[in-house]
Amino acid sequence: MSLGDEDGYGNDSGRSSDGYSTLGGTRQTRTRLPDSQGGDGYGPRRPARKSRSLFTVIGVVVLLLAAIAFANMGGGDGGNGGDGTSGSNGKKTGSAPTAATGTKPVTGKNGEIASGFAHDEQGAQSAAANYSVALGSAAMFDRNQRRAITTAVYAPAVAAARQDALDKVYSGEAFLANIGLNTDGTAPAGQTFISRSNPVGTKVVKFNGDTASVAVWYSALFGLAGEGSKNPVSESWFTNTFALTWIDGDWKVTDFTQKDGPAPVGRDQAASPAGEMADAVEQFGGFTYAR
């Protein structure tokens, strides 16, 4: 964003007649515009946009409910839920600043997913962040890739018990139709399906040696980019809390819960054309997330 775009820094900003009245050494003055509606002195805010594609809302909600249903099937042991309370031997931890620890976060990868996380709180946070990206990716809509992801992310017993249920959810014709995909999970001709999770931060809710509960706050891009899309790419915010267990030298998911937000105030920023959005997702690769 250029200086000319920010309130009070437009091209019409005048010079001050006071030789000692400067802003950043440029002798430009900040001009406050009148606000007839009693705003903050910089002009009235543009009203929030209220229109949103029904298909976008349905698609995201159905997708998230499907993931939650998969994670909660069979009950789980409930020992590492995301309620923020510690067990009899557990350790409840508060928030920690997002800063580098100096410890190598990961030593390898399992397919396309990072693996070999450290057997400590940092490793549990790194695992949860990377697993949230994998579970929220467009690859989950392809049967073979989905099975590879669940095998890499979930504890073996959990993945084996729930593969069929997950296949039914992601291959359901009604579900795919609601989000605008073909019956085989692919995007219609001329459109690009986008599903990407972008972690903002992590927090250890509970840690007890071989078990951990880690919350991941992230934004999600979801929809179809392309001409004629009825489900344009939109952004949502969620927090997933993962129950993790140390199994065979790595952290694995045994359960997770999800809630909306925290969501920031939307900025009045023009949406990019469909082609530009599709190109961006294809050209900008993802990260290996770590503390």
Rank of each mutant, 00 (worst) to 15 (best):
K104V: 11
M277K: 11
K230H: 09
P97R: 03
A148C: 01
P34Y: 04
Q125G: 14
S86R: 10
F207A: 08
I58S: 13
Q122C: 03
T98F: 05
A128R: 10
A243Y: 01
G223S: 01
T85C: 00
Q191N: 02
P44H: 00
Q163H: 08
G59N: 01
G90I: 08
G116C: 04
T150S: 13
G4M: 07
T29I: 14
P232L: 08
G24N: 13
G108W: 01
S213V: 06
T85V: 08
G261C: 01
V153W: 01
K230L: 13
L3K: 10
N178E: 02
E227F: 01
I149Y: 04
V169M: 14
S16P: 09
F242D: 05
R196Y: 02
A270R: 07
L166F: 11
F284K: 08
R32I: 07
F193I: 02
G19P: 10
S17K: 13
I179G: 00
Q269W: 05
P34E: 07
P232A: 07
G266W: 00
R146C: 05
Y218M: 01
G90N: 06
N240W: 07
V60D: 15
R49Q: 15
K104P: 01
A271D: 12
F287Y: 14
G90M: 04
F117P: 08
N11H: 12
V61Y: 03
G84K: 06
G190H: 01
D77L: 04
Y170I: 15
R147W: 03
A66L: 11
V106M: 12
A290W: 07
V281F: 08
Q283F: 05
G76W: 03
S219P: 01
Q191M: 14
A225I: 11
A128H: 09
A290E: 10
K109M: 12
R15M: 15
G228Y: 07
D77P: 05
R162A: 00
G90A: 09
R45S: 15
L65K: 03
A280S: 09
G76H: 04
G25D: 09
D120N: 15
A161H: 02
A69T: 00
W251K: 05
D83N: 13
S88R: 11
S13I: 13
Q28C: 01
G111P: 05
K252P: 00
N178G: 11
V158K: 08
A48W: 10
I58H: 12
S13T: 15
R143I: 10
A127D: 12
Y9M: 13
F193R: 00
L224N: 07
W246R: 08
P199H: 06
N11C: 04
F141I: 01
G180T: 05
S16M: 14
A138E: 11
G286W: 04
G25A: 10
S272L: 09
Y20A: 08
P232E: 09
F70H: 04
L166Q: 10
S13V: 15
L54W: 00
A270S: 06
I58E: 14
G84V: 06
A177R: 02
S2E: 07
T202P: 10
K206W: 00
Q145N: 14
L181Q: 07
E112A: 15
A271P: 05
A152I: 03
G266K: 11
